[in-house]
């Protein structure tokens, strides 16, 4: 189970990084950032996985006694919840900047924007 999750997370990060570095179109670069984000989230949740553990919700199956031996680690899941929201905010900001950049130069090609390059 965790092997599948690890492979998924690592490959998503690599695909995202390759997209960020190699693509010229700004929208495709933003998609690369989102893929990188998702891969990181999968990895962080995998780190909190306990073999044979169930979801950290105290329902009738888990009960309220001796909980610690039955559930997976809830802390990485709470951190990933925060990270997803921040990732959404970053993506929205990047898209807004991309719109403004398109309005300024009528182009989404990253090599047309050399004003801040030295």
């Amino acid at each position: 189970m965790e092997i599948i999750a690890l492979i998924t997370g690592f490959s998503l990060i690599l695909i995202g990084l390759y997209g960020i570095l190699s693509k010229r179109n700004i929208i495709k670069i933003i998609v690369g950032f989102s893929l990188f984000d998702t891969g990181l989230h999968v990895l962080i949740v995998t780190v909190g996985y306990i073999k044979g553990g169930t979801a950290p919700i105290l329902d009738s199956v888990v009960g309220t006694t001796d909980v610690a031996s039955k559930i997976v680690d809830p802390v990485p899941q709470a951190l990933v919840l925060t990270a997803i929201v921040i990732g959404l905010g970053v993506t929205a900001l990047m898209l807004a900047y991309a719109l403004k950049m398109y309005q300024a130069k009528k182009s989404l090609d990253i090599s047309d924007f050399k004003d801040m390059k030295w």
């Binding site: 996985y49 306990i50 909980v67 559930i71 809830p74």
Partner: peptide, 14 residues
């Protein structure tokens, strides 16, 4: 594979 929770998570769980 981890088999036990970290001390912090154990506190939250119990």
């Amino acid at each position: 594979d981890s088999t036990t929770l970290t001390p912090l998570a154990t506190h939250y769980a119990d």
